[in-house]
């Protein structure tokens, strides 16, 4: 484990609505060491997406601080990559041109040939060889999300922030993409923060899982996953993974304001 890369220190945030302020985050603190994969789970509407926007510098918290790499985040930074539930590919660009997009902003002086080589390398890592010239509309949902992930890491960001990137996919495609995500991380190390609703996804992909309480959210529980680095989906059916899923499920029920299920295991 390296030094702390993402540090969230006592962040409190509220949205101004017509009926008064709506608090979403309450004194939330969170540390993600360099190279770690952190999954954040919690009940619906508990402020998980707000968290991603705060880390990306797209919003400022009412109180508290967000630090990246020992620097306080006050505005967007070039060292962040983002992926959303909606792949938001640009329909007028080919898949390759979509993946290149961040390089046009972050590294405008990078030669065209190098950009293309970098994008092709990533597309091949996620199994999209031969689709470089296609339009997004010609690809399936899973393939679009693969391309979106490539775009999120093409500029080698320090931090990859993902807001339910697999949420809209069918179960089988989703599991395929977990494996892709995992393989990608083995080859292209990055620090990641993943927002998800899927407990199995969080256990399979993450080094630690943070359970947020209901709104306004604070870190309610942190689970160290501790599964072997190089894993396949089979690991989810092992007793230690099943135990972790049970713990997380109970924590979610607590966060929802319900009692943990007795003797469900």
């Amino acid at each position: 484990m390296g030094e702390a890369l993402i540090e969230i220190k006592g962040v409190t945030h509220a949205y101004q609505t017509a009926t008064g302020p709506l608090p979403v985050l309450d004194d939330l603190s969170l540390v993600v060491p360099e190279g770690d994969f952190c999954a954040v789970v919690g009940p619906s509407g508990c402020g998980k997406s707000t968290l991603t926007r705060l880390i990306a510098g797209l919003m400022k918290p009412d109180r508290g601080e967000v630090w990246l790499h020992g620097e306080r985040v006050t505005s967007p930074r070039k060292t962040v990559g983002m992926a959303f539930q909606n792949p938001v590919l640009l329909e007028w660009r080919s898949i390759l041109q979509n993946v290149i997009l961040p390089l046009e902003i972050v590294a405008p002086s990078m030669p065209r040939r190098d950009r293309i080589a970098r994008a092709e390398e990533l597309l091949s890592l996620v199994g999209l060889d031969g689709f470089e010239g296609k339009r997004p509309s010609e690809l399936s949902g899973g393939m679009r999300q693969r391309a979106s992930l490539c775009r999120a890491i093409v500029h080698k960001p320090d931090v990859l922030i993902m807001d339910e990137p697999f949420g809209a996919l069918d179960a089988f495609t989703r599991e395929d993409l977990w494996q892709t995500m995992h393989d990608l991380r083995m080859k292209e190390p990055f620090t990641a923060l993943l927002i998800t609703h899927d407990l199995r996804e969080s256990v399979f992909l993450a080094d630690e899982v943070v359970v947020l309480s209901g709104r306004p959210a604070t870190a309610q529980y942190v689970l160290k996953v501790g599964l072997p680095q190089d894993r396949t989906l089979d690991v989810l059916y092992e007793p230690r993974a099943v135990d972790m899923l049970h713990i997380l499920r109970d924590q979610i029920r607590i966060a929802q304001g319900r009692a943990p299920q007795e003797g469900a295991a």
Binding site: R53, A56, G57, L58, S75, P76, R77, K78, V80, M82, F84, V88, L90, L101, P102, I105, V106, R151, H155, I161
Partner: peptide
């Protein structure tokens, strides 16, 4: 759509 570029500054 805006955020993918805005997050890069």
């Amino acid at each position: 759509y805006r955020d993918i570029l805005r997050s890069l500054g």
